[in-house]
Design a protein around this nucleic acid. Sequence first.
RNA 1: CGGGGCGUAGCUCAGCUUGGUAGAGCGCUUGCUUCGGGAGCAAGAGGUCGCAGGUUCGAAUCCUGUCGCCCCGACCA
Length: 566
Amino acid sequence: MRLSRFPLSTTKETPADAEIISHRLMLRAGLIRKLGAGLYTWMPLGLRVMRKVETIVREEMNRAGALELLMPTVQPAELWQESGRWNVMGDEMLRFKDRHKNDFAYSPTAEEAVTSHVRQDIRSYKQLPINYYQIQTKFRDERRPRFGVMRAREFVMKDAYSFHMDMDSLVAEYYNMRAAYTRIFTRIGADFRAVQADSGNIGGAASEEFHILAGAGEDLLAVSTEGDYAANVEAAITRASGLPAPAPIAAMETVSTPGQKTCEQVSKFMNVPLTGKVKLLVAKAADGGLIGIALRGDHELNEIKAAKHPKIASPFEMAKIEDVQAGFGCEVGYLGPVKCPIEVIADYAAAEIGDFVCGANENNAHLKGVNWGRDCAEPETADLRTIVEGDPSPDGKGTIKLLRGIEGGHIFQLGQKYTKAMNLTVLDEKGEAVTPQMGCYGIGVSRMVAAVIEQSFDANGIIWPDAIAPFRVIVTPIGTDKSQAAKDAAEKLYADLIAAGVEAVLDDRGLRPGPMFADADLIGIPHRIVIGDKGLANSQFEYKHRRAEKAEMIAATVAAVLAKLG
RNA sequence: CGGGGCGUAGCUCAGCUUGGUAGAGCGCUUGCUUCGGGAGCAAGAGGUCGCAGGUUCGAAUCCUGUCGCCCCGACCA
């Protein structure tokens, strides 16, 4: 490619509205352009990068035995009604009517479509297992699109769906996909981590997310300092220590705490650490009533875990303030488990402390020296809190540290959620109808481009890993106003590189060196060859890797350049 | 969907308080000079000030409505 024929659209000024580095650099380098909220045009330079990502994904999916197909993005409402998700998906799913006034959705995901396809097409156990995938535009009407293509409404996703006669087969494919994802993320050049995940509203049992580690990540990951444990904090479990609560020492007594409602206020007012306090939250119970959730003062409720508890309503919902005040006869700032009118479930950590402080269930009063079993009933215990840095790792090895990550991929064992709902069966060896097990596996292809930038840039711009760079090497002749030799040498090198199958780009715009270097750095081309009279006098080119501090001189031959490209 | 903010040239923004000829920088075009880290000079092109209505002799500016966009807020590749 010649830059004289390629619209670079680079800019010096940082665009307004772009907060994170990848968004800024993608706009400045001219990779993408905004068309509307969460809607982006991929310009030629950016599209080259996304195609590279696609190619790696496609190669590895094919190698793993998955089969590419392409399903419609516009899908009839009937499909979604069949699975029950027409009502569940809410405003995130874009809906519209065709000329016959029939309802349609723009596909946010394709479990329904692929299940429908398999239902029509697959009859026999002999045809399973099978794994279909597509690389396609999806639309999710995010309540708040932001960070450019990182959280766009329209985006490109690789979505794969596998079907199996039994769980063993599903589990085997799950690990096959896990291995494929590991290869994909490695080839792309990302620093990533696979973590246990909550499966959200897609449903299903086991699931893991592949996160690209970056400070701008929207997800918090809990990772063991010593062992292999790694999980999204949403899903990270905490365990009971196994130690009994300490024996009571203090007698329980009431303390007047006028106006002290939050744990922090009470902790300060009474001069006790947050870890010595128990707070009581009130949620809607599964039976329609209210239920108390006791947490240690310094811990936070994990609503996902709470919703999974059999006695707590799902989806999780806090009780209405009025209902709580009516039930307890005091304001919510003074709740506690002693003489509590409703059942209390305690988080493990809250159940393991003694002589604690808690609300007195009367206004402007707290209790101190409280002990489970002595002053109130021994509570049922459960894992209900969000893991925090410094917690012991659930695998017993080391402690937990928190990292930030960008979710680039997600693999699920779905089970029979969709095959059952949509009545998909195949015949087994005995001629009996069996409902297949299903898995699904997604990669945010367009997001991946932004995520890689988040972990690979410097003050001058993007630094692409070779594997997804829009061009691998840029040839920059300088002094071309005076030197025909530099021009000729650059043309020759460019032609030789192309002939050698290298994706090279020639900066033949005839600009001054400054702007050429600035552009090359900004758009992140990994390798740069500068050709000028000074070097040519010694039969040398100048070579610089985008990450290198300084340039070095190499022989003015294609062979020498190819050797540098590796 | 709640709370806050912004819509003026391709981009970044000033002008609005106190109504009266629409501006700057970057970018773009042309010419001359310059040429190893985003050059200088000169000349030029480019905007019905988001849209609609109202007030006024007169509206980018004041009022009303509307649309779009951004930021903060309990779940997504």
